[in-house]
């Protein structure tokens, strides 16, 4: 079958030890049997490895941070559109999603499509709204307190661990008031308030990567058990698992929220075998290439949704497929670095 030629822009090219999803998304798209993609990388920083990976990215452009405002981002995308006929953008950086959601209509006017949740869905799944969400949806969620200042969390247990989480990133397991206050200040300085304090659930970590069609239907879901976790809490190895309950949770989540687009559920299986939802990431996770290898190419399905096709739901995935992440020292010519840093594009 002849593959359809399209141009897809992808962010999150920071394939480092705490990786963005961009490179895995692109690898999945490269394997598509439906599309022949020209890939445009969008990078915030000069050393995001994806910029220099020629077999991954056809061309890369620097874009302004979300903290510069949506207007700045939109202007830059308009500029890029003068050179590239972008069909789809897949944003992969948590902090930028809000801006892309806000820009959805204006991007559409440029002929650029995105597949993202609504502002309401995006807000509801925020860490600081998760307990309410859990109550309404019947999904088990650890107890949590949303704090705008250290004083908002008064009863810090002296001996039981708790989790302190930032609004966008970072989570620390701490014990006792002193540690709590230290990490609270650290997170508040970096990501602002609110800071979320959560009951610590001890157990094995499972993630589910999924895709919702926006009408309450689950199109894809692949559960993974983390087999090795780095000091940053990221999976360095993982394996697809067959526990039906994980897929059912994803179904329930999508049904409750009418979620549109990709998502990742982070779950902990407590000692007594119950799954607690600890976080919902409103985007494709960094380990997405595993889902592709297991038979569900979620990035390709996202592109199909973006282009207005109605992909049907994946029916199965291969259980026991494993990924082991590795790092690789790539040689970059100084000219390439100089060009990207001076001109903001490769």
């Amino acid at each position: 079958m002849k593959r359809k030629k399209i141009t897809v822009a992808v962010t999150g090219l920071n394939a480092i030890d705490n990786p963005g999803s961009g490179v895995s998304v692109i690898r999945s798209l490269r394997e598509s049997e439906l599309f022949e993609c020209r890939i445009v990388g969008l990078a915030y920083e000069l050393l995001e490895p994806g910029i220099y990976m020629k077999e991954i990215v056809d061309c890369a452009y620097q874009v302004p941070y979300p903290s510069a405002g949506t207007e700045a981002l939109f202007q830059r995308i308009e500029q890029i559109c003068e050179e590239e006929k972008l069909d789809v953008i897949i944003p992969n950086f948590d902090a930028e999603l809000y801006s892309y959601i806000k820009l959805e209509r204006r991007l559409d006017n440029l002929g650029v499509k995105v597949v993202l949740p609504t502002v309401q869905q995006f807000e509801e799944r925020h860490k600081y709204n998760l307990s309410d969400f859990g109550k309404r949806s019947g999904i088990l969620v650890p107890e949590s307190v949303v704090c705008n200042s250290i004083g908002d969390f008064k009863d810090c247990p002296a001996d039981k661990p708790i989790v302190v989480k930032g609004k966008f990133y970072d989570a620390f397991v701490v014990t006792g008031r002193e540690q709590f206050e230290y990490h609270f200040s650290k997170i508040a300085t970096k990501w602002g308030v609110p800071v979320i304090v959560q009951q610590f659930v001890d157990g094995a970590e499972f993630n589910v990567a999924g895709l919702g069609d926006g009408n309450g239907n689950l199109l894809a879901a692949v559960p993974m058990s983390k087999r090795f976790i780095t000091d940053k809490g990221k999976a360095w190895a993982g394996v697809t698992v067959g526990d039906r309950r994980l897929v059912e949770l994803a179904e329930l989540f999508v049904k409750q929220t009418n979620w549109r687009g990709a998502f990742e559920l982070e779950l902990i299986k407590s000692k007594d075998g119950r799954f607690f939802l600890i976080e919902v990431n409103p985007r494709i996770p960094a380990w997405i290439y595993l889902t592709t290898a297991a038979g569900q190419n979620i990035p390709e399905a996202v592109v199909r949704m973006a282009l207005g096709e109605n992909p049907c739901a994946f029916e199965s995935y291969e259980v026991g497929k494993m990924f082991v992440r590795y790092s690789w020292d790539m040689i970059v010519e100084q000219d390439e670095f100089a060009k990207f840093s001076m001109e903001g594009r490769t």
């Binding site: 100084q334 670095f337 100089a338 060009k339 840093s341 001076m342 001109e343």
Partner: peptide, 12 residues
């Protein structure tokens, strides 16, 4: 293009 490289320190 105005890119300066200091080979002694590696800074640009």
């Amino acid at each position: 293009t105005g890119f300066v490289f200091n080979p002694q320190t590696g800074e640009s």
